[in-house]
């Protein structure tokens, strides 16, 4: 064997290791047996029907979707101004600001969840706001990092020109900067949404009555059931992420931002 082929073979084997298990889940999801089996000995689509029949999956999917959209919007609303300020102004103490803003990415999710559980109980807060706060905090570092990258790549000359022609900084931002960093903002939104949607550790302590996220419902369901329903649901989630990656890789070149 030609030794120069070794790296690419290792690459392909790694890809099989990364993606192969998904194929197994796909196949297991179509099994006809009442317990999970691989390879299945009969064919059925009943587990996909069951995914939609389980009430906790339906309600927690909606919760996850709403939570993902809300926390993403909040993180964008809070994060874009920060990214702009950090890339366009010389702020005293910029290092401190940056450290504070990246801190949610450094603190383990379980710790965040536990801390917020204790904090929000003392405040008498309910479940949803604490989940929303935790997710938003978690997403901020991603938003700031991705949007900052786009802003740094955008030369300040054009907006300076607009400002010198009499536009206010806000107008310059709206008309000049925002359209040019659209890709970055969209990529930040997608990454943030996915991060929230898939989040387990932070949510684990914070879910409560009537408010459970999809990953937590899956874990609870798995605790008591050993049938292919989770395989079917996983299949749907994998297809969802493949779709998302393909669309955004084509439109934005997502790989530049990950």
């Amino acid at each position: 064997m030609n030794s120069s082929r070794v790296p690419i073979i290792i690459l392909y084997l790694t890809l099989v290791f990364l993606v192969g298990p998904f194929l197994v889940v796909f196949i297991a999801a179509f099994g006809g047996e009442p317990t999970l089996k691989f390879p299945p000995t009969s064919f059925s689509t009943q587990w996909f029907t069951k995914v939609f029949e389980v009430e906790s999956f339906r309600s927690s999917f909606l919760t996850s979707l709403g939570l993902g959209l809300m926390s993403t919007s909040l993180a964008l609303a809070l994060g874009i101004p920060v990214a702009y300020a950090l890339s366009r102004f010389r702020l005293p103490g910029a290092v401190v600001i940056q450290t504070v803003l990246t801190s949610p990415a450094l603190v383990p999710g379980l710790v965040v969840g536990l801390a917020l559980l204790q904090y929000f109980i003392n405040l008498g807060g309910s479940v949803y706001p604490s989940l929303l706060a935790a997710h938003t905090a978690l997403l901020l570092p991603y938003v700031v990092r991705v949007v900052s990258t786009s802003l740094i790549n955008l030369k300040p000359d054009i907006e300076e020109a607009a400002i010198s022609l009499g536009a206010s900084r806000l107008t310059a931002f709206r008309l000049v900067v925002l359209p040019n960093i659209r890709g970055g903002v969209a990529a930040a939104a997608v990454l943030a949404f996915i991060t929230s949607f898939d989040q387990v550790a932070v949510s684990l302590f914070l879910t409560g009555p009537g408010v459970s996220t999809l990953p937590i419902s899956m874990l609870t369901f798995m605790e008591y059931n050993y049938d292919p329903t989770i395989a079917a649901l996983s299949t749907l989630l994998i297809i969802f992420s493949i779709g998302l990656v393909l669309v955004f890789e084509r439109v934005l070149g997502l790989s530049r931002y990950v």
Binding site: L69, M70, T72, S73, L175, L178, P179, V185
Partner: peptide
């Protein structure tokens, strides 16, 4: 010209 994704997000925000 607000990006459409952003606009969509902000429309959904009050809804959710």
């Amino acid at each position: 010209k607000t990006p459409r994704h952003v606009r969509l997000l902000f429309t959904l925000l009050p809804l959710s």
